[in-house]
Design a protein around this nucleic acid. Structure first.
Lengths: 129, 129
DNA sequence: CTCCAACCTGGAGTGCGCTCCAGGTCAAGC
DNA sequence: GCTTGACCTGGAGCGCACTCCAGGTTGGAG
């Protein structure tokens, strides 16, 4: 039942105040409580959502899809299958993303090893990538 | 000594024609050959650069930094140290990125497991994230 | 020689995800 | 009661990385 002021919610979630307002404006966050004076009050539940959004955002999910997920959740328990499906599909994409990142990281490391085998300003074509 | 038409270079590099033109316009690609009629001719060397750019882009390097790298390479062998340094720094960031991605992927998988333990449209709070 | 698909240029437009701003309101501490 | 800093709204602006467009040129196939 604890309530957090906007600044506190921002600090805890790692999103900026503007981003929190933006998320509410586009309907990603809904039903954020208000004081009598009109100020936002974030609950632990809201914070839970923000943790999820951070997870999804960090793994590259577009906002539109997060909105879709949040919308489904708001529609109630009968959408649980769709939500699971949505997350599962996303997870598969993340796996692909991780494989690509690993592959390109290996390339990068190899490139760096190339520089380490040719130390200093020695003989080198001017435009070797 | 083989030369590739723009469409072929696009096909081989995975960048669009427009992106190749864009990369040249901003100076990321330089000294791309031309036919007497003004059409681009990409060499294997250019293709090599594009492979590198793809690696860097896929690992999240901003274009400005790629430009810096390309610029250094054009300045000759005496910048090799700076180039290595730049790539090394980037590689460290990519490692961090990979750790974050893995962590958030684990979160995501856990969330999905939660759905799998509560199959079907059963009892569930309407707004559990 | 003709045709047409591929190419050229400069510049405008797009989509995403915020971020900033002006001008005003609210409330905690002195 | 007053100050001051946190907060409010609607809307404009931004940075990135392209992407698209109009209007014109090129060059290989038939």
């Amino acid at each position: 039942m604890t309530g957090y002021a906007p600044a506190e919610a921002a600090r805890r979630s790692g999103f900026s105040l503007d981003t929190l307002r933006y998320y509410e404006k586009i309907g990603l966050l809904a039903d954020i409580g208000r004081t009598s004076g009109g100020r936002r009050v974030f609950t632990d539940d809201d914070l839970g959502w923000l943790v999820l959004f951070r997870c999804l955002r960090d793994t590259g999910m577009p906002i539109a899809q997060m909105c879709r997920y949040a919308q489904l959740a708001r529609e109630g328990g009968h959408t649980a299958d769709q939500r699971r499906e949505l997350l599962e599909r996303h997870a598969v994409q993340v796996e692909e993303q991780m494989r690509l990142l690993q592959r390109q990281y290996d390339h990068l490391r190899e490139k760096i090893r190339f520089y380490e085998r040719q130390p200093g300003p020695a003989s080198e074509g001017a435009q070797t990538p």
